[in-house]
């Protein structure tokens, strides 16, 4: 069964955090089972982020989590090797805008894209897309730089 990256796991940081939480949960389950066998008091279950919970729900369904299933899930995530794209905007977007952009990349480019976000007010507006091997600059700054040769003529025509 092909595994698709959940829509709410958008950024590389979230992806790594989900992986970490799953591994921690698996380790807790493993330790709890051993402690139960020896009669020791198990450690409190570690908390998970909403993204991790949603991933678990989609993976496990109604079943209770087990070490085997969690190991399989972790392995699927490791095999996934998602592509990371960095986007630069004039300001940091909110969650809605982040989700919109991530959905666009996963719909139009690859379903396993992770999108990192950063802000740079000097670009004025627009977007800069940085892939692992190329930069696509669609910012206002670049548009102005490309058209700066026309500015003197425009000024003369106005004058």
């Amino acid at each position: 069964m092909a595994f698709n990256l959940p829509s709410d796991i958008t950024t590389p940081q979230v992806f790594e955090a989900v992986q970490f939480e799953l591994e921690r949960l698996r380790d807790w389950l493993s330790n709890s089972a051993v402690k139960c066998k020896v009669g020791a008091k198990p450690v409190h279950e570690p908390s998970c982020s909403p993204e991790t919970k949603q991933l678990l729900d989609s993976w496990l369904g109604d079943k209770a989590p087990s070490v085997t299933q969690l190991t399989a899930l972790i392995e699927e995530l490791r095999k996934l090797k998602p592509v990371t794209v960095h986007i630069v905007l004039a300001a940091l977007p909110g969650d809605d805008l982040k989700q919109t952009l991530v959905d666009w990349f996963r719909t139009n480019c690859r379903p396993d894209v992770l999108v990192g976000f950063s802000a740079d007010r000097t670009i004025g507006g627009g977007i800069i897309v940085r892939t692992p091997n190329r930069i696509f600059d669609y910012s206002f700054r670049e548009r102005l730089a490309q058209g700066r040769a026309n500015i003197p003529e425009l000024v003369r025509n106005v004058g």
């Binding site: 905007l89 004039a90 977007p93 909110g94 805008l97 952009l101 004025g124 507006g125 102005l144």
Partner: peptide
């Protein structure tokens, strides 16, 4: 122009342009 636009950026109003560009 870039400096002038630097402050008070409204990404919401730019999203249309951004998505069209993409």
């Amino acid at each position: 122009i870039t400096e002038s636009l630097g402050g008070g950026v409204d990404l919401g109003s730019q999203m249309t342009y951004i998505t069209e560009t993409l």
